[in-house]
């Protein structure tokens, strides 16, 4: 069942009098619980598509339908609420808050998503997720004392702690070495399958495609092919 549908999405950037169309009418849908990879050469528009789908920038035209509502018609506050409660994000860099411990990073995300859990339940949830990403032994550590792989695992934990419907991952392994990249991808796959989270991921790394359920190839702002 499709949880997320992108319908004829276009994105045009204007630089002075020059108009450049980055996305030329994209259509795709994400099935619940599946991991979909967006692949393609640099400049093909895959990151732009991901950020439009995630509500981080508006489309010039088209529809982004999530749970039956077109996000393009939502106010910025409504989009923010969706991002906070229904979406999770993993970026190329972990982007952790430097003055919060690992545990506090996750508690913050629960606060932002307006979690109904009580404080002690939130702590339990944090412990559970940290165990899943094998970072429970570092819960009092600050980001500055973590390795790149550890940071990315905390970022993944932060992205799923509030049980989002959709996880957006923009090159989540690009800053990691080969072994750590595989570990992180395995972690994303296991967690999203366990928690039934739909994932849209941008990647350059072909090795990572073995962990995904479907692949969408993009070129020059258009979808070339859908492959399983």
């Amino acid at each position: 069942m499709a949880i997320f549908t992108i319908d004829e999405v276009r994105k045009t950037f204007t630089n002075g009098e020059v108009k450049e169309e980055i996305l030329k009418g994209i259509n795709l849908s994400l099935r619940e619980g599946e991991i979909t990879a967006l692949v393609g050469a640099s400049g093909s528009g895959k990151s732009t598509l991901l950020t439009i789908a995630a509500g981080l920038q508006p489309a010039s035209d088209g529809k982004v339908i999530f749970e039956g509502t077109n996000m393009i018609n939502m106010s910025s506050e409504q989009v923010r609420k969706v991002r906070a409660s229904k979406f999770g994000f993993v970026f190329q860099f972990a982007h952790l808050v430097p003055f919060l411990t690992v545990e506090e990073q996750l508690m913050l995300m629960l606060d932002v998503s307006e979690s109904k859990l009580k404080k002690h339940e939130q702590k339990k949830e944090v412990d559970k997720i940290l165990k899943l990403v094998e970072m429970d032994h570092r819960k009092n550590a600050y980001p500055s004392s973590l390795s790149g792989g550890e940071k990315q695992r905390v970022a993944i934990a932060r992205a799923i702690i509030h049980k989002p419907k959709v996880l957006f991952a923009d090159e989540p392994t690009a800053s990691l070495d080969s072994k750590r990249s595989k570990d992180v991808m395995m972690l994303i796959r296991n967690l999203t399958k366990t928690l039934n989270i739909t994932t849209l991921m941008v990647t350059h790394d072909e090795e990572m495609l073995s962990y995904v359920d479907s692949i969408i190839k993009m070129s020059d702002g258009q979808v070339l092919q859908n492959a399983v």
Partner: peptide, 12 residues
């Protein structure tokens, strides 16, 4: 950068 990330994850 930090503010941007916090906004991205939904902080008001």
């Amino acid at each position: 950068g930090l503010y941007g990330i916090l906004k991205a994850i939904g902080v008001k």
